[in-house]
Design a protein around this nucleic acid. Structure first.
Lengths: 235, 235
DNA sequence: CGAATAATTGAGGCCTATCAAACCGCGTGG
DNA sequence: CCACGCGGTTTGATAGGCCTCAATTATTCG
């Protein structure tokens, strides 16, 4: 799965690694980490549930979403392995969490945050990364056109590309990349603040322009990464 | 200034208070907190600057925003007193920070996070609250209409109203409230993902419907809070 | 293979952006 | 004191992008 954000990758590469080594041991001693295994499309918690635990995604992809009373849905985050989620400011979760793939998840008692300094350090690091992703996503939702949103979405799944320090195609040689979508069109639409039809139309448009090939519904071959990158609005 | 989010208010009322009492002393001992005073519309840092410090807003209002190369702007956060900001995951700030009012700000060395457990606790609490606000804002940007956005924006400035636990007008007796805007129409538009003209049109529309009165450009009297609340999309 | 689900495509309309002009409050200076 | 100019706001006319509704096609899975 090539869905890692450069920021998170970098993050884990630095101080995060130390946490990864010490935290599980520490918590194992206090008997508080419980490993859960979830199948695809299973709900981990619902918006409004009492937030008694927080979770760390060990393997798989999870989405967080919120609903409006009339059924409109906004997917607020797509989580990659290593991310902590379910950390609530109040008494209840502010959004629902659902797996997009099969997933392995560690569950901690919420009070563990105050007990374990290393867990808190890790949580803080995670939250800072997630905050930056949310800022980026706010720009996407507030200011980008449909084609820019979809292009940005695609570029996020190409490692080391699409960010601010986007090394052109020259460096890597080949300017193509295979992307596996773990989301349906509906989930993509709800993540990008669009409708399913608009997402589909944009994808068809990119196909017509020769920038991508749709191998299967959930598998897209980006023929010209730089071409897509140019459509993200960040150039 | 009545711009406090219920979530943050509650937050500060609980464990946050303890931090408020101990943290400043602790940091004073380590000589690392420097108090800054800023006038209205002054920049605290720019997107891309090296993130060597983080800040706590003691007094005033601050906005965080990001720019696209072609000039499009998205205001990603509006910060109230008590909030920590400038905590970067990477080496640089991911957005710019600018005061909306005069402001008093405490600046800390970034490395202080690892040294001071209480600062980190406070930071974590702040980030969790900010995260929930970002989730809400993502719903607004991705799924709400112009009138819902502006109504939501107005309701955020009415204490104890507009949230999930919105006590109706019966409790409070009077169903009206005065709101002081610290933002220009342009800033509001960039925050809500709209244009200045649309914001203006919606406000005129609410005025025509008798829901609000515009006393001055930066001062709005909400005549029927419940009427505005009904337009936020959360009912 | 066929039903059910998901995705695509088409036609039309609405909401919001865009461009343009008028308006307003306010400080300046004649 | 009032004309003037300036920045910010409001209002109007128009256009365009995306949504909505509907029909078709593709894909998945029993």
């Amino acid at each position: 799965m090539t869905y890692l954000e450069p920021a998170i990758e970098a993050d884990l590469g630095h101080a995060g690694l130390a946490n990864f080594e010490t935290r599980p041991l520490e918590l194992k001693q206090s008997q508080s980490a419980k490993v859960q295994r979830h199948s695809q499309h299973s709900v981990i918690f619902y918006e409004g549930d009492r937030a008694e635990r927080l979770f760390e995604l060990d393997e798989g992809i999870v989405m967080l979403y919120k609903l409006l009373p009339d059924g409109r849905r906004q997917v607020v985050e797509i989580l990659n392995p290593g991310t902590i989620f379910g950390a609530a400011a109040g008494e209840t979760y502010d959004c629902s969490a659902e797996t997009l793939t099969g997933a392995r998840i560690s569950a901690y008692d919420r009070r563990e945050i105050d007990r374990s300094a290393s867990l808190q350090r890790h949580l803080t690091k995670c939250l800072m990364s997630q905050m930056e992703l949310m800022h980026d996503h706010a720009v996407l939702l507030g200011r980008k056109s449909a084609i820019e949103r979809v292009s940005t979405f695609l570029m996020r799944m190409v490692p080391r590309r699409g960010g601010e320090g986007c090394i052109g195609p020259a460096e890597t040689g080949a300017d193509s990349h295979n992307v596996v979508l773990t989301m349906t069109r509906q989930e993509i639409a709800d993540y990008l603040g669009l409708t399913i039809e608009t997402v589909s139309r944009v994808i068809s448009d990119l196909k017509r322009r020769g920038l991508i090939k749709v191998e299967r519904q959930d598998q897209i071959h980006i023929s010209r990464v730089c071409g897509i990158c140019q459509l993200t609005g960040i150039h």
